[in-house]
Amino acid sequence: MTSPQTQSQPLLAVLWMMGALASFTSMAVAARELTQDLSVFQISFMRTVICLSLLMPYAYRLGWQEMKTARLKTHIGRNIIHFGGQFGWIFGVSVLPLAAVFSLEFSAPVWTAILAAIFLKEKLTRIRVISIALGFAGILVILRPGSDLMQPAAFVVIGAAVCFACTYVFTRGLAATESAFKIIFYMNLIQLPIGLVLSVPVWVTPDVEMIPFIAILGIGGITSHYSIARAMAHADAAVVSPLDFLRLPLVAVIGFMLYQEPWNPYVLIGGAITFSGNLLNIWSEQKALRKSPVPPLQATETAHERRT
């Protein structure tokens, strides 16, 4: 939760969330443009290079003693899975309508609740069960039988959402001993050699016109998380999270304007259903947080964390 002082600044939270939305949508467009000429592996590698370059100065300032970890195996396991999720997301952006990718990505918290119940023994409350049911209902609306989206690429995106959910579970365990910066730093550090090894066989030297899109993809990976963190500093998750849904109509407009992607009401409706389940769960956890001095784990997690 935010302090009373920061709760009185919802306008700042909105402005920071607008920055996050701009970052996410710009990353999607950049990935779509780059996949026309580059492999997903190479795009992931170049994104990691830029992110790591931006993080390195602060890591150097903190020093080795602050940045070293005793949980390297956990970091490696988390980020191998995260790399799979990142691959699935970029691949989905390259072949599916942007709005469909974002709608299916909203299912990540649904899978998180299921995995947390299995591996972290978190209680499946009535609200969480309803949230999960709404999540699956939204997926069914999006991927209704006979629709153009009933194709393997859509299930790759769902697989990416499951991977991101797995990383959330890993993050909960790591958060007890590791800072958020350290988790993000090791994510990029570990994924750097993975992306390099996989991209070398299919390497294509980027043209000059690709450089802005590469920069957007890398910088957006940092600015999106920073903007969300700043938004959360000025308002509770229950206030900030609904703004995340604006990504869906925004990216639908961008998809229509840049790529002539048709409007699909089922994608928007399905995404809204899935997101409503996420929002219901956040509101429930925020209510529990106000009653308890010990914050529930899921109360601090939002759909925004999908790429950390």
Rank of each mutant, 00 (worst) to 15 (best):
H225L: 14
I132G: 09
I118C: 07
T48N: 15
K287H: 14
E105H: 10
V197D: 04
L11R: 15
Y259R: 06
K123A: 11
G159K: 09
V202M: 12
T300A: 14
I76N: 00
T69C: 02
T25L: 02
C166G: 11
L55S: 04
L246W: 06
L198K: 01
G277N: 14
V162R: 02
V156C: 10
V49T: 11
M18G: 15
M18K: 09
T205F: 08
V208A: 12
L104S: 03
T69A: 01
V202C: 09
V208G: 01
G270Y: 05
L104Y: 01
F213V: 07
Q42V: 09
P262D: 10
I80A: 10
S227W: 03
T25I: 13
V267F: 11
A299L: 03
A108L: 05
A100H: 12
G255E: 14
P193V: 15
A113P: 03
W64T: 10
S103R: 09
R172C: 00
T171F: 13
N278D: 08
F245N: 09
L149T: 07
A20E: 04
C166H: 08
A22V: 03
L217Q: 12
T69H: 05
A30R: 05
A180Q: 04
P212Y: 15
W203E: 03
T2K: 11
M56D: 08
D207I: 12
A59D: 05
I190Q: 14
V129S: 10
P296Q: 03
F45R: 07
L21G: 00
H225C: 00
V93N: 06
Y266C: 05
I43L: 00
I90W: 11
I214A: 01
F24Q: 01
R306H: 06
E261S: 00
Q191R: 06
V29Y: 06
E305N: 00
T223N: 02
T300P: 02
Q65M: 13
V251R: 06
D244A: 12
Y58Q: 07
N281C: 02
F245Q: 05
L104T: 08
L192M: 08
V40G: 07
V162Y: 02
L280Y: 02
T177A: 09
S276Q: 01
S292L: 01
M210V: 12
A99T: 00
P145Q: 13
A229Q: 12
F119R: 04
A175M: 06
V239S: 01
C163W: 07
